[in-house]
Amino acid sequence: MRTSFGKPSPPSEDRRWKIIGATMRRHGYQPHALIETLHTVQESFGFVGEDAFHYVADSLRIPLSHVYGVATFYHFFNLKPQGEHTCVVCTGTACYIKGASLILQAIEDEYGIKPGETSDDGKLSVLTARCIGACGIAPAVVFDGEIVGGVSATDAVNRIRRCLQK
C-alpha cells in the first residue's frame, strides 16, 4: 500500500496526461474534482482506461474503488475505446414516437452491431442516447458528432456507409 503521498507520475510519456494533470491542479487536487477529471480523460483519450483510474485515484488521494464506482455510475463515461466512427441514435420520447427503434434495427441488420457495441475491425461504434434535446427534428442521430434530424432507417444506413468510406 502506498504510504507517502508524493505527486504520482503519469502512466506514460503521452502528452495528453499533462492536460489531465492540469485539470486536477486547477481544482487543487480536491476529491470533488473527480468527475471533472474523468471528463478531461474521456475528452483526451476517448475513453477512461485502467491506467487513468490508477493515476486519478492516486493524484486525488481517493480509493480506486471510489473512482471506479463513479466512472461506472455515470453512463457518459466509456470504459472501452470507441470505434473510429460513432453513430449515436437518440432514443428520447419524441424520437421513440417517430421510430428510433426502426433505425437501430436497420443498423443492426446491415452491420450486425447492437447499441453499445463496436464492429470487430474497430471502425464503427453504435450507441444510444437518452435524449440529445433535438426533439423538434426527431428522429435524430449523431454521426461523428454531427446532429442530423428527420433520419429514416435507410438514411441512417446510407450515412454510415458514407462515413465509413471516408
Binding site: G92, T93, A94, Y96, R130, C131, G133, A134, C135
Partner: peptide
C-alpha cells in the same frame, strides 16, 4: 441537468 427525454 435536463434529463427528461423529449424536453429541450
Amino acid at each position: 441537468d435536463e434529463g427528461d427525454p423529449g424536453a429541450f
